[in-house]
């Protein structure tokens, strides 16, 4: 009973937040609402007994990515003017509305065949999950089956994931890593030379 109440409350706040994000025009407020959205999702993951995912969502979604977006906002704020105010209202909203309605109806239709949450007969539970639950503790001695699967049974996957994370850092460093002393002045000088 209390679970249903918490779920409904969190989902209602999620819906309200997403509508607010769509209707808001202040970028700073939108970034803060993204953080709130992630925090609400983290709460939902806790209710669904997935504290690992909730940790990650709260730290990355609500914390680090909000900070990154604020850092980006601090760079673009003064230069970028809102374009939505002047955007011409030439298009009719009916076609997008019909597309969204049909897609949403198809998705809802698809959920009818999804097994219930925690259903022991769901295909995801009957394939290898039984093996892990029965053998993870005797074979690895690790009580947390998630860690046993992640680090031992699926060690290759996790090595690939760590490599992906490392590659992301390399890409960011290559793109915007180096210190650039006053690029704006250089660009201005170059522009003047081109004009001359």
């Amino acid at each position: 009973m209390i679970d249903i109440f918490i779920n409904v409350t969190l989902l209602a706040f999620l819906a309200i937040t997403s509508v607010a994000i769509v209707r808001m025009t202040n970028l700073f407020a939108i970034v803060m609402l993204y953080g709130i959205f992630s925090l609400l999702s983290a709460g939902l993951f806790v209710v669904m007994d997935a504290p690992d995912v909730a940790f990650t969502e709260a730290a990355v979604g609500a914390g680090i990515s909000t900070v990154l977006m604020l850092a980006t906002l601090a760079l673009i704020r003064n230069q970028q003017k809102p374009y939505y105010a002047e955007a011409p209202q030439a298009h009719r909203p009916w076609l997008p509305l019909i597309v969204v309605a049909i897609t949403g109806a198809a998705l809802v239709y698809g959920t009818w065949d999804i097994p219930g949450f925690g259903d022991p007969n769901a295909p995801a539970q009957t394939h290898v999950a039984r093996y892990y639950i029965e053998n993870a503790l005797p074979e690895t001695g690790v009580p947390n089956i998630v860690t046993a699967v992640l680090a031992s049974y699926r060690g290759f996957d996790t090595l690939g994931e760590v490599t992906v994370v490392f590659t992301a850092a390399v890409a960011v460093l290559l793109l915007i890593g180096g210190r650039r002393p006053k690029p704006a002045v250089k660009l201005k000088d170059k522009g003047e030379q081109d004009e001359a």
């Binding site: 504290p51 690992d52 940790f55 730290a59 914390g63 009580p143 860690t147 992640l150 994931e161």
Partner: peptide, 15 residues
Amino acid sequence: HGDFGPGGGFQAGVI
């Protein structure tokens, strides 16, 4: 403590 409780390297790293 990731062997016994929830969590592990990814979560600890981001925290």
